[in-house]
Design a protein around this nucleic acid. Structure first.
Lengths: 163, 163
DNA sequence: AATGGACTTTGCTATAGTTCAACAATGCTA
DNA sequence: TAGCATTGTTGAACTATAGCAAAGTCCATT
């Protein structure tokens, strides 16, 4: 168990992800910095969600992602040794993570489809529908970054929507 | 083994995916139709690649994706019964597909990052770099659709690039 | 209650990307 | 080899979205 206060980082890009997190309470975001220094939110996670830079964790490469607490947050984490011994010794864990990967793959797939075929406004509506609780908890700025637009443009979309 | 000639469909959206394909020779694309009837390419596959609408295949839901041969194509396929018995009886197959899902998850993740942070031109350059052989084999029209722009705009980017 | 800092809104201009229409090039098929 | 299909190119007008700046709002801390 660890505690992070608002704005604290659980992981910085270019560090090695040494653990996978399970959120007990609070809310975090994962984001990347592009070569212009602009942040892009990849995902949010709240209570009872798993997250982590799996790519870094599993393949032992430097992380691409940053993970930051958006609220005071309490997490549990699995270290690499524990992960590896679970994989070796608990067949159910292998099955469980297989399904986890599979479902994440589906989620990612759907997000790619969405990006290809939806406008910004549609992506915003989809976000509201899919994560109704997050939309209250997370600032617009972060939602805008998640759906791939500027905060100003999101603000404009919202104003347009009211009319 | 089955043979499909150019333009023939291996799978139509709203059908149920009853098999997963392995391409022996040829080239196919998977695409979706948006509600405006516009096609969006999701992926290409050539010799020695696996593909299929896994989401439909595994969760037994109607396919979202269409799969179409871009060249005369020879494939091998695994039926659902065979898949299921492999899962039940061959532990290595479970491990293998777990890694397959994991890697697909990583690939998808990277593509999402790219969509968030790259311009159309950068996505095109990345495509050329990542799939140099595909860029000769697949028409510009389809590449444009894959990176999420119109064929006209791709044509313009290419003209600009020459100078 | 006052101050400062982050977030949101508004309006204006700039740019990336689309749409449409016409034409050119290329590739199939007879 | 001619003829038709499809694909690629070009340019002009249009639309979606970004960028910037200023003002307004919402908190958290003194």
């Amino acid at each position: 168990e660890k505690r992070y206060s608002k704005k604290e980082h659980l992981l910085y890009a270019s560090d090695y992800a040494k653990e996978v997190f399970f959120i007990s309470s609070g809310c975090v975001r994962t984001y990347i910095l592009d070569y212009n220094g602009i942040e892009h939110n990849i995902s949010f996670a709240v209570e009872n969600w798993w997250l982590g830079d799996l790519q870094s964790f599993i393949t032992q490469t430097p992380a691409a992602q940053n993970i930051q607490a958006l609220e005071d947050t309490v997490i549990f984490s699995i270290s690499q040794e524990n992960w590896n011994s679970l994989i070796k010794e608990v067949p159910e864990f292998v099955y469980y993570t297989r399904i986890l990967f599979r479902n994440t793959m589906f989620t990612h797939e759907n997000r790619i489809l969405q990006n290809l075929s939806f406008t910004a406004e549609e992506r915003y509506n989809y976000f509201l529908k899919t994560y109704p609780n997050l939309s209250h908890r997370v600032s617009q700025k972060h939602i805008a970054s998640y759906i791939g637009i500027t905060p100003e443009f999101l603000s404009m979309l919202r104003a347009r929507k009211k009319r």
